[in-house]
């Protein structure tokens, strides 16, 4: 096979599969099947079918694993780049979504290779029909997920001292240990309050200058500070993907001069599948907690 035909078939596989993906996403957006939510079907079934479509275009090329994997990566990366252009996604989001998209595009090529090797039209139609049914079923299903993440730190200081740094705290200057913060994801740096009472405004300031506006819902001195998130920044990394709903610090006097500090956060996710995105959401929330709570610990234990 000459180079011209080879290149044409490779390009055809990449372009056709991406065209398929964007037309399908466009249709679901137009029909408003799941407004404001990115569903399992978009991150799993579409990449799978993209892999199958590209393998169909490349079925005469006798591609080996290395080339097939490489071309699948190009295919998936093009879809990711186009998503960033059309959907305005941030770099961290793209990084998080990459293993899922690339993994399922490669899985699609493996399935496609097996399908077209057998060349059983009934089997091929069955596989594609099943994927279509799954896509439609998932697209019209209700998607809601809210959860709480909780972390505990024991501080070698009395509750009275810890409380001073819980309500508001001065700037965090310690280096970030969490890899996502190190590569540019905003991390919390300070908190300010308008008053020490229920209903007072509180602001949590992040490293890139973004501010979460909060309102104190429970102000139980030296025991419980609970606040609702009134508005969160319009950051492409979080906008439309996660809403932080509520935060809470609970203090418990251990009776030996130490305090157990519990940090709780409630969030709502708008990206699915949960088995993938909830791991990230939990990890990020936990590291936001720990960054703040370690800071409170170090301020409280300062002699």
């Amino acid at each position: 096979m000459n180079n011209k035909i080879y290149n044409f078939k490779v390009l055809k596989g990449i372009l056709l599969s991406n065209l398929f993906a964007f037309v399908l996403i466009g249709i679901t957006r137009y029909l408003e099947l799941h407004p404001g939510v990115f569903v399992y079907a978009e991150f799993v079934i579409i990449p799978l079918v993209m892999g199958i479509i590209s393998t169909w275009c490349w079925r005469d090329l006798q591609l080996k694993s290395r080339s097939l994997t490489g071309l699948s990566c190009v295919n998936g990366l093009l879809a990711i780049v186009l998503s960033s252009v059309f959907l305005g996604e941030g770099m961290i989001c793209l990084l998080i979504v990459s293993p899922l998209i690339l993994g399922f595009v490669i899985t699609g090529t493996v399935i496609g290779k097996a399908m077209f090797k057998r060349d059983n039209k009934n089997l091929n139609m069955s596989v594609l029909s099943l994927l279509l049914v799954l896509f439609v079923a998932d697209s019209v299903s209700d998607h809601q997920h809210e959860r709480m993440v909780s972390d505990i730190v024991v501080i070698d200081a009395p509750t009275k001292e810890v409380w001073k740094h819980v309500v508001a705290f001065e700037r965090i200057d310690e280096e970030n240990k969490y890899w996502l913060f190190q590569i540019g994801m905003p991390s919390p740096v300070a908190a300010t309050v308008e008053g020490h009472r229920e209903g007072a405004g509180r602001k949590c300031i992040f490293s890139n200058g973004y501010v979460f506006d909060e309102r104190i819902a429970v102000y139980n001195r030296e025991r419980d500070l609970t606040f609702d998130i009134v508005s969160q920044p319009k950051d492409p990394e979080i906008m439309g993907h996660i809403d932080i709903l509520r935060g809470q610090f609970l203090l418990k006097d251990n009776g030996d001069g130490t305090t157990t500090l519990t940090g709780n956060s409630w969030y709502r996710l708008y990206v699915f599948p949960l088995w993938y995105y909830d791991i990230w959401a939990e990890s990020i929330t936990r590291n936001v907690h720990l960054r703040v709570m370690d800071h409170i610990k170090s301020l409280s234990e300062k002699k």
């Binding site: 694993s65 290395r66 994997t69 490489g70 990566c73 293993p99 690339l102 993994g103 399922f104 490669i106 899985t107 493996v110 399935i111």
Partner: peptide, 17 residues
């Protein structure tokens, strides 16, 4: 398992092609 194997393949492609 196929997805896991695809991730292994991706890892291999990136680190030890």
């Amino acid at each position: 398992a196929l997805f896991f194997d695809a991730l292994l393949k991706l890892q291999l492609f990136l680190l030890r092609p």
